[in-house]
Design a protein around this nucleic acid. Sequence first.
DNA 1: GTCCTGACATATG
DNA 2: GCATATGCCAGGA
Length: 103
Amino acid sequence: MPNFDDQIYAVLIQIPSGKVTTYGDVAKLAGFPRHARHVGKLLGSLPKDSKLPWFRVINSSGMISLKGESFIRQREKLLDDGVEVKESGAVSLRRFRWDGEPA
DNA sequence: GTCCTGACATATG
DNA sequence: GCATATGCCAGGA
C-alpha cells in the first residue's frame, strides 16, 4: 500500500490539460475517498517549481478555493490550459470536469 | 493529550 | 442558491 502523498501525486500527473477535477475526486481516485482536505494540504505544501498540475484541482462547487496571488496563478494557468475561468474563479465543471479516465 | 484551523464534501432545510 | 450541521484527517500551538 503506497503512501497517501504518492498516490495523490500519481493521480495529479494523470489529469489531462484542458481539464479540471475536484479535491474529493482526486482523493477518491487515489484510493482515499474521505481525504479531500488532505489533498488541499498537500497541494499547499508543493514546491513552487513542482511539475504537478495542482492548478487543475478545484472544489466541488467548480470554484477556485484560493485567494490573492495564488488564486491569480491558478486562474492564469487554467486559462493557458484552455479552461474557461470567470473573474470570480468559477469554472464550467459541466464542460471541463475530468472523469478520472485518461484523455 | 486537547483545541483550533484548514486549497473539502455531502446532506438538509 | 445560501446557511447550517456533520464527517474526516493532518498539523500546529
